[in-house]
Simulated scan of single mutants.
Amino acid sequence: MRGTMATKTRRKTMAGKKNGGRKARSESHATPTPADLPRTALEEKQALLAHHVRMVARGLTHGLFVSGGGGVGKSKVISETLAAEGVLPVLINSHITPLSLYAALYEHRQDKILWLDDADSMYSNMPILGLLRSALWGTAEGRVVTYSSTQLSGVPGNFEFQSKLIFTANAIPKRNEAFKAVLSRVDVFELTATNDEILEQMDVLARGGFGSLDAAACQQVVDYIRHAGGNRQLSMRLYESSLRKVEYAIATGTDWRDLVRSQLDQLGSKDRDGIPKPLDTKGHDLRCMALAVEKFPASARQQEEFWCESTGKSRATFFRVKKQFEAQQQEDNQ
């Protein structure tokens, strides 16, 4: 497999030389889906999020809260949509104190969009939540924000806030009534994606190739992630980083599957509370074996190739797991 991918890459390079030496256009995971292809399920969700962001940019709502796990495109959609609307947001994406947030709200109080990006730690701070409530909902006098502190310097103790807010988090904070009060003042959108939806998106992106890799090589990597991923929680961030590892592996003569597998091993599945837990590797190995036997019932060699590719494990391990699988099948049939 490693030799096949390297050969295809060399052919692609040679084709570029025949084309007057012009270098093929490098494509990344941000390449738009071809117009003649229908949107994927994830793209449909991202398009709906873009509408919500657009409404904030056009002044139809004061604020938007977006939640969702990492690597599903929250920040990408928000930044690209605001840019398309000609909006340069005021980005706040690190720790901030209530006093600093108050000063930032005052400085950008008119006709701006403040974007609190993945600022989960802020949402348990009661003074910050109080400022957000005031900035997002007001009375007949407007959205008046107040703050009392001896440290105020050059900033009034109250002002009318006429800008808008977008804030994001990986998850909606639980058992936080003060934060619920903030959410009641804004539009709320949850961007989530199942592993099947993420893999569908990867399949589409693979058609455009990546860097020195052609479409077939990219699809080979996506298929490996599909089979070796097990019940790990996948994200779109895995796509580009995996392909860069493949490019490195081809250049250095390394087995790219080992590199991609090492990255997959850092991911975990999630329990009902959303907390990552270790992957059941034995169960995953047996599921891959069942799939190998189903796909190639008459060929042990093809079963071995499929299983080793799917798990990244050795031929010796294949035979050991197959023996366990057959013993399990006998027990189930008794």
Rank of each mutant, 00 (worst) to 15 (best):
I250K: 05
E197L: 11
D332H: 03
G70Y: 14
K164G: 09
T40P: 00
A216S: 11
L136I: 05
T194L: 07
S28P: 01
I113D: 07
K8E: 07
A251Q: 07
V72L: 11
S75P: 12
H95D: 08
G71E: 13
L199F: 04
D332M: 09
G68S: 08
D196M: 04
H29A: 14
R261W: 00
Q263N: 14
L48W: 12
T81M: 10
L238R: 03
F161T: 09
V293L: 07
I96G: 06
G71S: 14
G130C: 10
R22H: 06
K18E: 04
S28G: 14
M202T: 05
G71A: 15
V90R: 00
E331I: 15
S262Q: 04
G73L: 10
L82F: 07
P297G: 10
D280A: 15
A103H: 08
A140G: 04
S75M: 10
R244V: 15
Q201D: 03
G208Y: 01
A215E: 11
I92V: 14
F189D: 06
A316E: 01
L213W: 00
E197F: 09
V77T: 09
M202D: 04
A206V: 11
E160S: 13
L91G: 01
A140L: 06
L165N: 00
D36R: 07
D285G: 13
I92C: 11
R301N: 13
S124V: 13
A50R: 01
E240L: 04
K180Y: 06
R22C: 05
S75V: 11
D265Q: 14
V182K: 03
M1Q: 00
V87F: 04
G230W: 03
S67D: 01
L183H: 08
V155C: 08
G20W: 04
A47K: 05
L267Q: 03
N231A: 10
T61K: 03
I113T: 09
V87G: 03
E177I: 12
A206R: 05
R301F: 14
Q263G: 15
E80W: 00
D111M: 06
V293G: 03
L191P: 01
H108T: 09
D265A: 15
G154N: 07
Y147C: 00
C218H: 07
T4S: 09
R54F: 15
G86L: 15
G209F: 04
V321Y: 00
E247K: 01
Q46R: 05
V72W: 05
S163M: 00
L49R: 12
I275Q: 13
Y102A: 06
V144H: 12
S262K: 03
R109K: 10
D223N: 09
D187Y: 08
L82M: 06
D111V: 06
P98V: 11
L129K: 00
A298L: 13
K180C: 06
S310N: 02
L152Q: 02
K23R: 10
K174C: 00
E160H: 07
M5N: 01
I128C: 05
I78N: 02
M55W: 06
A228E: 01
G68H: 03
L264N: 08
R54I: 14
I113W: 08
Q303D: 13
S269K: 11
C218S: 10
D258W: 07
P89M: 12
C308G: 01
T192A: 14
N333E: 13
R320F: 03
C288G: 11
N333G: 09
K76G: 15
L259W: 09
A298D: 12
T81P: 02
E304V: 05
G21L: 12
